[in-house]
Amino acid sequence: MSTTDMNTATLVDEEELRYARAEKREKIAKWLLPVLVIALAIFLWDRMVVWNDIPHYILPGPGLVLETLIKDWGMLSDALIVTLKITLAALAVAVIGGVGLAILFTQSRYFEMSFYPFAVILQVTPVVSIAPLIFIYVDSRIAGLLLCAWIVAFFPILSNTTLGLNSTDHNLRDLYKIYGATRWQRLRYLQLPTALPYFLGGLRIAGGLSLIGAVVAEYVAGTGGIGSGLAFRILEAGYRLNIPRMFAALLLIAATGVVIFTAASLLSHALLHKWHESAIKRES
């Protein structure tokens, strides 16, 4: 044992200690710095409003925004739930549609040749310009919103998953062929696991996009009353010059986006940390 002690004593030299200290500092800074910067930004925002005597109908201070958020929580939380429902439903349909189409694409080249351009056209056409038409043809407002959000969100999942399904190691493909794998076995045991990291990358983008799609669609749809989401609350508050409420609703949308992104990142980590390069910490 004494030799081991001596070894550790000699092995941990000054440089190593310095390295360990730097690592520790970095770990703390990773959390502390962003929090400090955000706090500083909010503080400056508050001071700007106070020092310049900006009236709250032009720029409310952070305190007032928070106050409004609490005061209007009943109305805003209802709106948040509506927006969340549309966002998550659109994301779910985008996942099913994107992955489903990607699988069909890789199963049949002819299918891909026929429908890939169609998917690209849907993707490159700005949703704001299709949305009015959708709301003319689709009676159900919810279905229209969902359709808009889906159009925006599904493409990254489709293109990423297609790329992933086609990225299988060619030697593994040969091996599957030699062992007489069926098309279904190859898809399930080889192509889908290969595509998983690509899909999760697409999901992270699609999560944000489905929220954007839901918000933009609601702006276009524009109808109010019961069952309106956050975007409509922002529009409505704008007409009434209730700027603090606009900020409060905006805050909720931003927070929702952050939560969706974080959830997708956590899911990605949970599924990949055991084997994929992206999730493996580099040693030294």
């Binding site: 190691d169 030697n171 593994l172 040969d174 091996l175 030699i178 045991y189 080889l190 696991p193 998983l196 055991k274 084997w275 994929h276």
Partner: peptide, 11 residues
């Protein structure tokens, strides 16, 4: 069959 690379499934 054994290839030049190990050709294992990383997952």
């Amino acid at each position: 069959v054994v290839f030049q690379e190990p050709t294992l499934m990383p997952w």
